[in-house]
Design a binder for these strands. Structure first.
Length: 575
DNA sequence: GCCGTTTTCGGCCCGACTGTTTTCAGTCG
């Protein structure tokens, strides 16, 4: 069954091919919005009775989605692919090349792929009407260095890089206020490019100095209020946009550049109905020729003027947040400060670097009330998994160290492997002695969706298993999730009172936010764990919390937000 | 192609920057 992401990507392909063909703008836009709706949907569209339940999906796009769900090629896609070379989709990804340009390169110069564009002579392109020498050379050069491997920044890398660039902007004498916006501020698990917004009475001097800063490797655009540059990231080029407005419009700009685009569009459509236009400069009375914007210094003013509760950045995806804000039904989102403990950390008993003491002391520093040590189980040799004997020894040591610290409760658990047949890597009698059991998969990934799903369901039905760690096994930028039916996992988790983990490691963040949202709707509890293998990784908790916020989670949905007394009850009461 | 607090037809968010242009189309977010 194709995932929402796969369905959305297929719709995006339809969009690009239609654009190249030159279809009517609003028809293309309709498919674009359908693609975004699918991507933002809180549960698999394959589970819906009718895709038309999604916003911006009508009868025509619903039929396309039905075909995609059934793994069939929709007529529109068949038709487009017969007409337009598929390779042109990739050509439109070249910087500065859009569907129009790609279409002309194909029709007038017979180039149907990035490779063929790279092989063109710049003079051939510049001989076409409307192209000059400069743009021709740019197109060929970007095709030559094009790398099809799209690597997005992981959230901790983007946070660090964005912080460094933001420091430069904040330290500039012309800057009054500045911040990070875009998908990083919305907390998306991976980030394509960085957006920085600034308030200044002297935009030009800030823009000029930013374009000439030492970290800049290329200047893509450089105007009075907007600068686009390229910097060196850990995995190659990273695009960065800086946008500057007057201080009194800072809230308007921050909102505009935080997005998402889809959120901004529905918000602005709402504003138009209220006779108001919204832009990065403020709010204006609709219909005026010369719009006079009344700037908003804070984002809150914008929502207030539209009769909406303030919508946190993590929710701005056009996924029902406007309706909830209107009804006053936005959840109070979980915060890092709500977290009382970490239920999944490793020590040097298995493959961690820290000791029981050093991890405990780091957890005390964070103000936690409890910490659960979950080292690997015996069959996971590569991670130095614990034999039953060593696990018993560890249990004794944890109890001993626990007495040493009055500030925190130390518990002994295990991250027990779910074996290929769904049985667990320790006997029940041993699991029973543990305070907390996390179960997860580290081997035999390729057994197919049916077998994988059954395997995990069986583990959930073990009375000692309290949560399933990194339930889909994805490693961002490195490994796709194994094939598994997450909706079935969620239903069984609800039925067996098993929690699901939101693993905070920046390259996992698994479960992903849309699934966590589905789980919460089904009444499943979430554990937000760091899976820390050393003391410093305990701080990854903030990334897990951010994803939980994107999933509309409040602290009531998160097991490890329980204060110690209630968590102790939770442990004792069993499943 | 989608959608409805004037509408089942006629609208559809808003603006910056570039290159090649004498007024704007294309791209991007």
């Amino acid at each position: 069954m194709p995932s929402n992401a796969e369905i959305s990507r297929a719709l995006e392909t339809v969009v690009t091919l239609m654009e190249i063909r030159g279809d009517e703008h609003y028809r293309v836009l309709a498919y674009q919005r359908a693609a975004e709706s699918v991507a933002a949907a809180g549960s698999p569209v394959s589970d819906l009775d009718d895709p038309k339940e999604l916003p911006h999906v009508g009868e025509t796009t619903a039929e396309v989605i039905r075909d995609l769900v059934a793994d069939e090629t929709p007529d529109i896609l068949d038709e487009l692919m017969a007409e337009i070379p598929r390779g042109l989709v990739e050509v439109t990804r070249l910087p500065g090349v859009g569907p129009r340009t790609a279409g002309r390169l194909w029709k007038e110069l017979d180039a149907t792929s990035v490779e063929e564009v790279a092989a063109l002579d710049a003079s051939d392109i510049s001989s076409l009407k409307g192209f000059g020498k400069k743009s021709a050379e740019k197109i060929v050069a970007s095709a030559e260095k094009y790398n099809s491997e799209e690597r997005r920044l992981l959230i901790h890398t983007a946070t660090a890089l964005g912080g460094k660039l933001l420091d430069f902007v904040r330290n500039h004498p012309a800057t009054e206020k500045a911040g990070l916006a875009g998908s990083l501020r919305r907390g998306k698990e991976t980030i394509g490019d960085l957006d920085i917004v600034a308030a200044s009475g002297d935009a030009k001097s800030l823009a000029d100095d930013f374009a000439e800063a030492e970290f800049v490797t290329d200047v893509v655009a450089h105007g009075e209020t907007k600068v686009s540059i390229v910097v060196d990231g850990p995995d190659g080029d990273v695009d960065v946009d800086l946008r500057i407005v007057a201080p009194e419009a800072y809230g308007s700009l921050l909102h505009h550049f935080t997005g998402s685009q889809a959120h901004n569009i529905v918000l602005r459509e709402r504003a138009v109905k209220m006779d108001t236009n919204i832009s990065e400069y403020g709010l204006a009375k609709a219909g005026e020729d010369e719009r006079e914007y009344i700037p908003a210094e804070t984002e809150a003013e914008i929502y207030e003027k539209l009769g909406l509760a303030y919508i946190p950045p993590e929710l701005r995806e056009d996924a029902g947040e406007l309706e909830a804000a209107e009804e006053g039904e936005l959840p109070r989102l979980v915060e890092v400060g709500d977290v009382r403990g970490d239920l999944h950390v490793h020590t040097n008993y298995s493959d961690g670097k820290g000791t029981i003491e050093s991890m405990a002391e780091a957890a005390i520093e964070l103000g936690y009330e409890y910490l659960v040590f979950c080292d690997h189980s015996q069959s996971l040799r590569v991670a130095n998994g614990l034999s039953p004997e060593r696990l018993s020894e560890k249990m004794v040591e944890v109890r001993k160290v626990d007495e040493k610290y009055g500030e925190i409760h130390l518990l002994c658990g295990s991250e027990v492997d779910i074996l290929k047949d769904g049985s667990l890597d320790y006997e029940d009698s041993l699991l029973e002695e543990l305070d907390f059991v996390v179960a997860s998969i580290h081997t035999s990934f390729q057994i197919g969706e049916e077998a994988m799903t059954d395997r995990i369901l069986r583990a959930m039905n073990n009375e000692h298993v309290r949560t399933i760690a990194h339930p889909t096994g994805r490693v961002l930028n490195r490994r796709e999730p194994y094939e598994v039916n997450v909706s079935r996992l969620i239903k069984e988790a609800a039925a067996t009172n098993t929690a699901l983990e939101l693993n905070s490691y920046p390259d996992r963040l698994d479960l992903s936010a849309p699934y966590v949202r589905e789980a919460i709707k089904a009444g499943v509890h979430i554990t937000i764990d760091t899976d820390a293998h050393d003391e410093s990784a305990l701080s990854f908790m903030k990334y897990g919390v951010t994803q939980a916020r994107r999933a509309w989670a409040g602290k009531g949905n998160v097991v490890n937000c329980l204060p110690w007394g209630e968590f102790e009850e939770f442990l004792k009461s069993g499943k």
